[in-house]
Simulated scan of single mutants.
Amino acid sequence: MKASSADDVTLVLQDGKNVVWGSEEDSVTKAIVLVALIKNAPESHTFDVSAPTAPVVR
């Protein structure tokens, strides 16, 4: 995990994938969205759920 502030949290999963989490706001929604994104795009390396209603996958 790295964070330049409480609103800029990025997680690194065990398999090396990066998750841009942002702040703790809407954490439950972010977790649900993240699980769906990883399931549907397993080849992707970066998942940005900082805005869970408009996630970005790279």
Rank of each mutant, 00 (worst) to 15 (best):
A3H: 04
D26N: 03
P42K: 04
S27G: 04
V20M: 08
T46L: 07
G16S: 01
I38E: 03
T53C: 05
D48Q: 04
A31I: 05
L13N: 02
S5T: 02
K17Q: 06
K30R: 12
T53N: 06
R58Q: 11
A54P: 02
K17G: 00
A51S: 03
N40S: 11
F47W: 09
S44E: 07
K2G: 12
S23L: 14
A51F: 14
S5A: 11
K2D: 07
W21T: 10
N40Q: 14
T10L: 03
G16E: 04
A54S: 13
K2L: 06
L11E: 02
V35E: 00
I32P: 00
K17E: 09
N40A: 14
M1Y: 10
A51T: 06
D8Q: 02
G16Y: 13
D48F: 13
V19F: 10
F47H: 01
V35C: 02
K2M: 07
W21C: 07
K30T: 10
V57T: 06
D26W: 07
S4C: 00
I32Q: 02
S50H: 15
T46S: 08
S4T: 08
T29K: 09
N18K: 14
E25P: 03
E43V: 11
H45K: 09
S4G: 03
A41G: 08
D7Q: 11
V20L: 15
Q14L: 15
